[in-house]
Simulated assay, not measured.
Amino acid sequence: MPMRLLGALCALLLASAPALAFPDRPIRLVVPYGPGGITDIAARILAPRLGEALGQQVVVDNRPGGAAQIGFGLTARAEPDGHTLVLATTALAANPVLFRVIPYDARRDFTPVSLVGLVPMVLVVHPSSPAHTVRDFIALVRSRGGEMTYGSAGNGSGNHLSTAMFNHAAGGLQALHVPYRGGGQVMTDLVGGRLGYVFAVLPTARPFIVGGQLRAIAVTGAARSSALPEVPTVAEAALPGFALNEWLGLLGPAGLPAPVVAKLHESVVAALRNPDAAARFREIGVEVAGSDPEGLRRHLDRELTRWADLATHVRFEVAE
């Protein structure tokens, strides 16, 4: 065999070695939040189906804290062999505008695998609110002169950031932000009439809406949600072009070998196509995606730009 051909064959075998050996032990799926939230629920739907596709157990590892920085940082520092992944959220793109120092670089320190799904937000108010449409709502907030309150699960949470984006798009609405230490108490206080409004993830808000404890004004996605088909989008109701979703994306540390990325992506797509998994995602209001790695990279780039741009118009309290 000519030496040139032999060298090419050796290079090909070396390049494919990671894929042939991977995975050779259980995979850790880091969730940068505590149990019970939408990211954790989605991870526990995805993990067993992903494990079936890969032929290895996928173990969910909750690492909450620091506005998801602990989980993201742990993944960024992991060995780039495909056995540590993170189910990332909007926080990966928003944290650079909220913290002066973070223990990772969102573009440089991760390898995108797949956009898993989009999670629409829904604007909800107490049933006693006089607002029934987005235009009613905007007028109501303006009439309160900055005194209307909105709740969030904390500074930098999806509720907080989505509200800031909406308030800016609606012409600079002024309202009082009330941060909590988690999403549960936010909904409790809105149902109790102690808050003016909340932009909540649809899976969290839907039971209260269906039960008549909250009124849905609009969803934030580009299209109506199949989980609340009668509720209009913000764009069709008042603000053309407005579209905002929480998102879930699977990433590994920087430097994952291409064959490992390809195998992971193929397995994610297979997991998302599982009929049972697809039905469970629909039930909780997650719109499954299953993009290729480059699709997630482009999505992350757009999100980083979006939040950086918002920070030039909206003053956020920046943490150390």
Rank of each mutant, 00 (worst) to 15 (best):
A170H: 01
N159A: 08
V186H: 07
I217V: 15
T188I: 12
R194C: 05
D136L: 11
T220Y: 06
V141D: 00
T163M: 08
V141G: 04
Q213V: 00
G211E: 13
G171P: 06
N159Q: 13
T149V: 10
Q213D: 08
V210W: 02
L214S: 07
F208Q: 13
V201C: 05
F199E: 11
T220D: 08
V201P: 11
S143L: 06
R144M: 13
G192R: 13
A170T: 01
Y150S: 09
V198F: 07
T163R: 01
G158N: 10
Y180E: 14
V191A: 12
A218F: 05
T133S: 15
F199I: 09
Q213M: 10
I209C: 11
G184M: 09
D189R: 11
V201H: 07
A139M: 10
V198E: 07
A139N: 14
I138P: 05
M148V: 14
T163E: 05
L214D: 08
G151H: 02
T188F: 10
L161V: 08
S157R: 00
A200E: 15
A131S: 15
G212S: 13
V191W: 00
G158C: 04
P179L: 09
G193N: 07
V219M: 03
D136R: 12
G182S: 12
H168M: 03
Q213G: 04
G221T: 04
H168I: 02
M148T: 10
A164C: 12
G211K: 12
H132Q: 15
F208V: 06
H160L: 04
Y180L: 10
G183H: 14
D136P: 11
T133P: 05
R135F: 03
S143N: 10
F137M: 03
T204E: 15
L173D: 03
R142N: 05
M165P: 02
G184N: 14
H160G: 06
A175Y: 03
A169G: 08
T149W: 04
P179R: 08
L161Q: 01
T133C: 11
E147R: 15
G196Y: 00
R135Y: 05
D136A: 12
G146P: 09
P203E: 11
A170Y: 02
A200G: 08
G211Y: 11
R144N: 09
G145W: 09
T149H: 07
G211I: 13
G145V: 11
P179Q: 08
T163C: 06
G171D: 06
S162F: 05
A164P: 00
G183Q: 10
V134C: 09
G172F: 01
L173W: 03
A216P: 10
M187S: 01
R215G: 02
S157D: 03
N155Y: 14
L173R: 02
Y180R: 15
G192K: 11
F208S: 14
R206L: 13
R194I: 03
L173V: 09
S157Y: 04
R181A: 14
G172P: 00
V178K: 12
G146I: 07
L176Y: 11
G183N: 12
S152N: 07
P203T: 12
V134S: 00
T204A: 15
V201F: 02
L214K: 04
S162K: 04
L140C: 01
